[in-house]
Design a protein around this nucleic acid. Structure first.
Length: 859
RNA sequence: GGGCGCAUAGCUCAGUUGGUACGAGCGCUUCCAUGACAAGGAAGAGGUCACAGGUUCGACUCCUGUUGCGCCCACCA
């Protein structure tokens, strides 16, 4: 068997084969569990805008949980899908069209739709195949897309009900407008960037004499001013409140109003109010019933027919023009440098223009309250917990949600208006107005915010609003794992939608995984070109290694820097497992079907079985906390060091058995399977373990009969001696092979011949050989003393012993001071004091032994 | 302006509720082609746990403040 195994593990030759078999045999479907419990995760649908990046590879955390629960015996379901990502996809297609020197307007709506559909099919498949390469055990037969007809039904249902409940309304409000996409976007989709700019001080004359100076970063908006505001308590302006200023160039009368929103410390303490193009001003305008003027076209150009110098100009050009005009008019006092942040569209990067526009809104207050409650009461739990606070704060301050977008791509708003002006939301496309029967209906041209549809993801993918078996069986789900940046955009919205429409939480646990940064700690981005393609990593190191990296670094919500060497390290780990199996198979070992005979087990066997039991316990506990890094650490130590480095070496010397080794390896593979599914399946099958697939092998239980702290301590001592002997050998003659040696020990394990053979094996010394006269080297560890016959310099050995002695004496002094301190002995817990006392005793004994040895050794 | 996170070996990171850092990987030094594995084995060197106070018998661990980096929120005109 081993002869057909290469010395190196080659992931590529294994992974594809197993994945195909798993999928073919339907292992990813829920099946019948043994526990009667279900475990469900809705996979966050990746945007169909391109290829996978390391952020998607982080979905590994979900697969680890899914595979673990499957082994635990739960009926386990991972629902995959994709998102149409309206604004992002439209941007991609528009860019393509631009390259072809055309535009969506030129090709028309129908042709545009065809482009979109083609794109979805091609890109969607590619993304799903990338996920398969990562080994994701999602149930592809339940694949959902936010544009599926069933899914659209869910969206319609939600919209119509919210509309009937009065929670959706349409109205003009100030919104963030992207002039490039020519669409509104939500507050969450605006990204602010710091910028060095200028602050302009404009002088407005006041009726009845005098002037008032206002500071603004956007002088071009002055043509839309409808008031000037000051703080109500500002002593400088008490006499002006209620009077009127005259807008230069335009001549409009502007009331000087008093409003709390004005910061007296900023600029001159007086602010021009442009309700049509600034969110704060809009609110001031509402409070003072100010006129709202619009001075921009949807493409962001100026809309000021009365001033030809400005009309249809870009904002930046208009700014220059108006500054020049104001200067000429003597209305510009001064310009100061000014550092502030400017909003950009998170999708296309264009500068956002706040403007007033009629949009559809969801009333948030009634929806937010229950959503806060379930989080505060721990029905939905956040990992790490600190995100709970963020979530609650955000939900508490939430404003109405602008859900309409002026895009071509997306779900049309299901509202039709008839010739008689009846505006109604319909579940099905209507043939006639339900109020008056009029048949000349026109549908609202807008589409819905993508996040409106994503908000229904966990339940709409299970068939809601139909009462499906899946919905009954798998909802609510258990875990939602996602990136930090969409906590508000998505997670919060799923929670309130689920509570409102299904009366239950959508998931019990929210895991926030870390954002992958490049090695320098920068965000990965297209413009920097520092992104990492998981497929390239899979090609180089295998999916298992890539997954292990994700599982190790992804938990904790902390950002994680990408270092390829670490993936290489996990590939090496897979190789180690492979070679351990290769050794065993070469010796004819197979996974034992029956329990091991207790009577036939030696100390080394019981020790490694004890380590296995301890590791099983630790790994299970770590998985329960969804904290995978310690689990991987423990498995690494067990498989690589305790098992491969120590136990297998003992086995080769006849001090362990192939049966025990195979048992340990088989269980280790199971513990590792959720993280590294491919290599574990491959080796598990080669070992001839019981069962069709490791995917459904039961999760190991720790066997307490082997957990033996005394034996652990004895082996620890043995390994200490081994290390010291190797060290001594390396120091005296690094090339020495199996030098003759003699052991004296009162230690329980090492006074037995079998223990001495362990030592001889691991330390590579010959206990049957003859000590040559003269050149010797003595190693003392606790109650064990090993004398080696090596060509060493005795005087350097003496110096070393003297150094050791000095160190021990320092230690004794330290311990004595501590134990003489009544503060310590009186206040510290008894077991701590006792431990220090024991430590002192041991150190004193060790000193004694070393001293007698020193006395006996030649000067 | 508010809130949060992070500062531990040259680098990247672990360190479970206070009791001498068992730290890990990479990198570095020395040795090893020995029948599983050089993607390996063995032995090492390397840390005032950002800084300053405080609480405590005892602080990397708790509290306060400072500095540096990062993130989130906000109506910075």
């Amino acid at each position: 068997m081993a002869s057909e195994m290469e010395t190196r593990y080659d992931p590529a030759s294994v992974e594809q084969r197993w994945y195909e078999r798993w999928e073919e045999r339907g292992y990813f479907r829920p099946g019948e569990g043994r526990t009667g419990k279900t475990f469900t995760i809705s996979m966050p649908p990746p945007n169909i805008t391109g290829d996978l990046h390391m952020g998607h590879a982080m979905y590994t955390l979900q697969d680890v949980l899914i595979r673990w629960h499957r082994m635990l015996g739960d009926t386990t379901l991972w629902v995959p899908g994709t998102d149409h990502a309206a604004i992002a996809t439209q941007a991609v297609i528009e860019r393509q069209l631009l390259k072809e020197k055309t535009s969506k307007e030129a090709i028309g709506r129908e042709a545009f739709d065809v482009r979109v559909q083609t794109w979805y099919v091609a890109t969607g498949d590619r993304i799903l195949n990338q996920m398969r390469k990562l080994g994701f055990s999602a149930d592809w037969s339940r694949l959902r897309f936010t544009m599926d007809p069933d899914y659209v039904q869910a969206i319609r249902h939600v919209f119509v009900q919210l509309w009937k409940e009065g929670l959706i309304y349409r109205g003009p409000r100030i919104v963030n407008w992207c002039p490039r996409d020519r669409s509104s976007i939500s507050d969450l989709e605006v990204e602010y960037e710091e910028r060095d700019d200028a602050l302009y001080y404009l002088v407005y004359p006041v009726e009845g004499g005098g002037t008032i100076t206002v500071a603004t970063a956007r002088p071009e908006t002055m043509v839309g001013d409808t008031a000037v505001a000051v703080h109500p308590d500002d002593p400088r302006y008490q006499g002006l409140i209620g009077k009127f200023a005259i807008l230069p160039l335009v001549g409009r009368r502007l009331e000087i109003v008093a409003d709390q929103a004005v910061d007296p410390a900023f600029g001159t303490g007086a602010v021009k109010v442009t309700p049509g193009h600034d969110a704060t001003d809009y609110e001031i305008g509402e409070r003072h019933r100010l006129e709202v003027l619009s001075i921009l076209h949807p493409d962001g150009r100026m809309d000021v027919p009365s001033i030809p110098e400005l009309d249809h100009k870009r904002v930046t050009e208009a700014r220059e023009a108006i500054v020049a005009m104001l200067k000429t008019a003597g209305a510009l006092d001064r310009i100061e440098p000014y550092h502030h942040s400017v909003g950009h569209c998170s999708r296309c990067g264009a500068v956002i223009e706040p403007l007033v526009s009629a949009q559809w809104w969801v009333r948030m207050k009634p929806l937010a309250e229950p959503a806060i409650k379930v989080a505060e009461e721990g029905e939905v739990r956040f990992h790490p917990e600190r995100f709970l606070e963020q979530y609650v704060r955000w939900m508490g301050n939430i404003r109405d949600w602008c859900i309409s977008r002026q895009l071509w791509l997306g779900h049309r708003i299901p509202v039709w208006t008839c010739a008689n002006g009846h505006q109604v939301a319909y579940l099905e496309d209507p043939a006639a107005c339900e109020r008056c029967g009029d048949r000349t209906l026109t549908q609202d041209p807008d589409v819905l915010d993508t996040w409106f549809s994503s908000a229904l993801w966990p339940f709409a993918t299970l068939g809601w609003p139909k009462d499906t078996p899946d919905l009954r069986r798998f909802y609510p789900t258990q875990v939602l794992d996602t990136a930090r940046e969409i906590l508000y955009l998505w997670v919060a919205r799923m929670i309130f939608m689920s509570l409102h429409f299904l009366g239950t939480i959508p998931f019990e646990h929210v895991i926030i995984h870390g954002t992958v940064l490049d090695a320098q700690g920068r965000r990965m981005s297209k413009s920097l070109g520092n992104g990492v393609d998981p497929l390239v990593m899979i090609e180089r190191y295998g999916a298992d290694a890539t997954r292990a990296w994700c599982a190790y670094f992804g938990t904790g919500g902390q950002d994680v820097r990408f270092h390829e060497e670490k993936i290489a390290y996990y590939r090496n780990f897979g190789n180690k497992l492979w070679n351990a199996a290769r050794l065993l198979l070469g010796r004819g070992a197979a996974a034992p079907a029956s329990p091991l005979e207790a009577a036939s087990l030696g100390p080394a066997d019981r020790w490694i079985l004890g380590r296995l039991a301890a590791a099983t316990r630790t790994v299970t506990e770590a998985f329960e906390r969804m904290d995978f890094a310690p689990a991987i650490d423990v498995l690494e130590r067990l498989a690589w060091h305790e098992f491969a480095d120590d136990y297998l070496e003992l086995m080769k010397a006849g001090l362990g058995s192939e049966a025990v080794a195979a048992r340990v390896l088989e269980q280790t593979l199971r513990l590792l399977h959720p993280i590294m599914p491919f290599v574990t399946e491959e080796l598990w099958q080669r070992l001839g373990a019981q069962g069709e697939t490791i995917m459904y092998a039961p999760w190991p239980q720790p066997d307490p009969t082997y957990e033996d702290p005394v034996l652990d301590a004895e082996m620890a001592h043995l390994l200490d001696v081994v290390r010291e002997v190797r060290h001594a050998r390396h120091e005296t003659d690094p090339r020495a092979r199996r030098p003759p040696a003699e052991v004296e020990s009162t230690h329980p394990l090492l006074r037995e011949p079998v223990g001495q053979r362990y030592l001889a094996t691991l330390a590579q010394i010959d206990l049957n050989g003859r000590l040559a006269p003269g050149a010797r080297r003595t190693v003392v560890v606790g109650e064990t003393r090993v004398t080696l016959s090596v060509p060493g310099q005795t005087d350097s050995e003496r110096r070393r012993m003297e150094q050791d002695l000095a160190r021990l004496q320092d230690e004794i002094a330290r311990l004595r001071t501590r134990l003489d301190d009544p503060g310590f002995t009186g206040k510290a817990p008894k077991e701590i004091v006792e431990r220090e006392r024991a430590r002192l005793r041991q150190t004193e004994e060790a000193t004694q032994r070393l001293r007698s040895l020193l006395d006996a050794s030649p000067e």
